[in-house]
Computed example of a mutant assay.
Amino acid sequence: MTQPIRWLQDEIATRMLQKLDIVKLEAKDVLVIPDFPGEHLATFAKRFPNARIHSVLGEGITGFQLCRAKLIANWRSLFRSGKANAIAGYLQADRFNLPDNSVDLVFSDLLLQDLVDPKHFLRECWRVLREGGLIAFSYLGPDTGKELNNLEGSPLQLKNLLSPWDMHDMGDALVTERFSDPVMDMEYLTLDYQKPTLLMADIQALKLINSATTSGIEIPDLPQKLTLEVVYGHAWVIGKHLAKSKDHVAYIDPNQIGRKTRSDPS
């Protein structure tokens, strides 16, 4: 998510936190991916005053910018900051720089639509989440930018989202990856534009077109609005250490099997 649309990321983070108002969770460690200077920092500081916040920095964000924003939001949070890494590092390694069972909450705001393999992301979240932990996320669904599909003969090179999953696809994936009690929700947001240049800036930031093809080109009949399908979800990690499954077969560690004895009836 690039700078022209950063306000959207902040707005969706606020809505995600509102949806979590009914969730009871004591978090000692929180992973925010992608993290950025936004209003959510003050909310995290208030809701989880003793938690360490581990950050995977969004595109174009530096550690200094995030530290400055945390200082403004709540100076005490600087003393509880955890690890901070760049999103590029995660995308290259396909792995969080965190040990197994190390966080209680993964908070992911508008990321999954940019990942080639969301299931791998879910597996990494499962790996780092502790028993009783929670994953909360939002992403752009397949109806995002549907107005652009009507631009017949346009020089714009339209791009599909890397992960065009609707909320049912994601709900099924959560169950497959052993998350419990998934809750999915979706809403449409409509952005209205007075200038075509503003629309072009946003659809480039949302990665809906190949930006290399738009330089110096005037696009006729551009829409004056843009639809965003925003999908929300959260799910729990329950019974993490009871069994591991592969190819629909559950494998139970022998150490997890209790031994029952009975007295001799004679």
Rank of each mutant, 00 (worst) to 15 (best):
residue 204 Q to H: 01
residue 66 L to H: 10
residue 226 L to W: 07
residue 168 H to L: 09
residue 177 E to R: 05
residue 243 A to F: 01
residue 105 L to D: 05
residue 256 Q to H: 10
residue 101 N to E: 15
residue 122 L to I: 07
residue 145 G to W: 08
residue 226 L to S: 12
residue 120 H to E: 06
residue 18 Q to V: 12
residue 25 L to P: 05
residue 160 N to F: 06
residue 72 I to G: 07
residue 180 S to V: 08
residue 90 Y to R: 05
residue 47 R to E: 04
residue 66 L to T: 03
residue 261 T to V: 14
residue 251 Y to Q: 02
residue 78 L to K: 03
residue 152 E to T: 12
residue 220 P to A: 12
residue 217 I to F: 06
residue 200 M to Y: 03
residue 180 S to A: 15
residue 24 K to A: 08
residue 247 D to C: 07
residue 34 P to K: 00
residue 135 I to T: 06
residue 66 L to N: 10
residue 200 M to F: 00
residue 91 L to M: 12
residue 247 D to K: 13
residue 203 I to Q: 01
residue 122 L to D: 04
residue 234 H to W: 15
residue 20 L to H: 03
residue 165 W to S: 03
residue 8 L to W: 11
residue 34 P to I: 03
residue 244 K to L: 03
residue 41 L to G: 05
residue 247 D to M: 10
residue 207 K to G: 01
residue 252 I to D: 00
residue 239 G to P: 12
residue 223 P to S: 13
residue 98 L to W: 02
residue 261 T to L: 14
residue 208 L to W: 05
residue 156 L to W: 11
residue 13 A to Y: 15
residue 37 P to D: 07
residue 38 G to A: 15
residue 33 I to V: 07
residue 101 N to L: 08
residue 102 S to F: 04
residue 160 N to M: 10
residue 3 Q to F: 15
residue 258 G to C: 14
residue 134 L to A: 01
residue 148 L to A: 06
residue 37 P to K: 06
residue 137 F to A: 12
residue 60 G to P: 01
residue 206 L to F: 11
residue 24 K to D: 13
residue 27 A to P: 02
residue 157 Q to K: 13
residue 174 L to F: 03
residue 231 V to L: 00
residue 81 S to P: 08
residue 220 P to T: 05
residue 53 I to Q: 08
residue 222 L to R: 08
residue 30 V to T: 03
residue 156 L to I: 15
residue 159 K to Q: 13
residue 211 S to N: 06
residue 154 S to Q: 10
residue 46 K to N: 11
residue 44 F to I: 09
residue 25 L to E: 02
residue 170 M to E: 01
residue 249 V to K: 00
residue 102 S to D: 08
residue 31 L to E: 02
residue 114 D to P: 02
residue 177 E to T: 09
residue 224 Q to A: 12
residue 139 Y to P: 06
residue 191 L to D: 04
residue 181 D to M: 14
residue 51 A to W: 02
residue 167 M to I: 11
residue 48 F to L: 04
residue 7 W to C: 03
residue 248 H to M: 00
residue 241 H to Y: 13
residue 142 P to V: 09
residue 143 D to L: 12
residue 52 R to P: 02
residue 208 L to T: 02
residue 171 G to V: 01
residue 85 N to D: 12
residue 79 F to W: 15
residue 22 I to R: 15
residue 199 L to M: 14
residue 5 I to M: 14
residue 25 L to M: 06
residue 255 N to H: 14
residue 187 E to C: 05
residue 89 G to F: 04
residue 255 N to P: 06
residue 45 A to K: 00
residue 104 D to K: 05
residue 160 N to P: 04
residue 183 V to T: 10
